[in-house]
Design a protein around this nucleic acid. Sequence first.
RNA 1: GCCUGUAUGGUCUAUCGGAUAUGACGCUGGAUUGUCGAUCCAGAAAGCAGGGUUCAACUCCCUGUACGGGCGCCA
Length: 574
Amino acid sequence: MYRTHTCGELKATDEGERVTLSGWVDRIRDLGGVKFVILRDRYGKTQIVVNPDSPVYSKVDEISREDVIQIEGTVRKRPKEAVTNELTGEIEVVVERLEILSKSKLPPFYPGDEVSEEVRLKYRYLDLRSARMTNNLIVRHKMAFATRAYLSDKGFLEIETPYLTKSTPEGARDFLVPSRLKKGNFYALPQSPQLLKQLLMVSGMDKYFQIVRCFRDEDLRADRQPEFTQIDIEMSFVHMEDVLQLAEGLARHIYATIGINLPEKFDKVPFEEAMEKYGSDKPDRRYGMEMMDLTQYFKNSDFKIVKDIIDKDGFVKGFKANIPMSRKIADEYSEFVKGYGLGGILWFKIENGQITSTTAKYLENEYVAISKDYNVSEGDVFILAVHEDREKLNTALGALRLKIGKQYMKVSGYDALWVIEFPFLEWSDEEQRFVARHHPFTMPYIEDIENNVEPAKIRAYAYDMVINGFEAGGGSIRIHKREIQEKVFEMIGLSKEEANEKFGFLLEALQYGVPPHGGIALGLDRLVSIAVSVENIREVIAFPKTSSGTCLLTNAPSTVSQAQLDEVGITLKQ
RNA sequence: GCCUGUAUGGUCUAUCGGAUAUGACGCUGGAUUGUCGAUCCAGAAAGCAGGGUUCAACUCCCUGUACGGGCGCCA
């Protein structure tokens, strides 16, 4: 037996107990006479005492930090003055036997040291020994476990779908896997089990879920990895509201199991409102600073920057913030919004009851009117921008709002909401056609189509769950009638032949009695990162990739042998 | 594809167009009988790669590489 207890469980009540512990040597404190060894495992740390009369006294000199050792000894209470607040701070173990199970080479860092992420990723197995990383993985497990319990209770079946599947167009770039048996053919790793879970609905599975890996070969971000985990859900005989209720309940439940209370009711915010007020389809409302349309105040301005835009039927929008402002800061913000296609920002503040601004001499009347109507008071700063493209204006100001919020405001708590009524279509400059914004199986608002609403304004039964400004998940009600599906393909310029070639199996299935259905996928990585308050999902993934898609631990991706290439019939260029 | 930041002992970092490159942690050796980031003394240990500017480059410039953040992209 390697151990009778873990390093995190011995308490004062275990006094006198004879125990065997195994773990890593966290620290050795040699006081010349008495020596202390701190033994660590994922449950905690226990102090081992070695007195000069101990049978293993000289053996302690052979061990070093991060060795794996086993000890046998007796639990005793520490002297009063030596008690600490730690989990096992009341006791220590007087060692009688000590065995080195495995020596450690001098590590590049010790668990919990402040080290660059690059080094942490290279030695991820050491990094994961830290209490923080261990906790992140524990929280992740608890949330995944709670998900299974909750959904199983509600009658959902966890059903696996293949990872080696068919490449489908639309959406992200596929990771391809060459087929050896059918040379020249490729599997694709699924971007999500979307089509397969819909087929499960056709099969009558009624309520499906899966905690599943998804793969998208696109450039990475702090919250995007090439492979990530979704809580994938699909339900039959449901309306949008049923899916939202279920997902909301699930989110509340899994957060509750780790001690976080999400709001009783998630607000529903239409996409357009989110864009207008926050310039984002995943707003973090905790920062306040809602954006306002101020175009009317500038209709008669002759300040060139503004007039040029107004003459082109452009817009002026802005928001109020309680932040420091100076010429230098304004320049920085202007530079920032230039990255989003704007020319810069305008601003004014109220200082000593006066409007202060580098542009006050051109726009004083406008600023005064805005101050009055929007109750801009002493110390407030008002930031404005102009552009002829309203979407660009919203996005740029929204990004600035978020930057300012993160810089100056300490927010706490959890803001959870639904963004609904997403546009059904989206113009693709690259392809010069409308593409499905969510995916081509999403149910559009039929009345919008019947009322001949312009394509870009047709709404979809698509929804995103947003928590603290992160897109925690998204889904839609699907099309269950072949006629509508065909109409949609027509709208996105997909010919019958192409549609058949690409989604033939789904279209075929849609002819055999399909229940109305819909679903959602929640991003587990993001849910966990929100729960442990980190911005980067790498912190909650055991073995993540760098932003260039490599694994510093294994050095993947790497070249393969000519023989391997030959087997799958692939010749490399050059 | 584009923009941007970073690169100095094992780790985290300081400084400087010139001389012996700073400190902390860790490590090694020594001292030390109640520590808990133990303490005290001593020691070893470093400029990402290539090119350029210069009498002289770790420092300035360019290119590359790696890592971070963002835009595009991500149904």
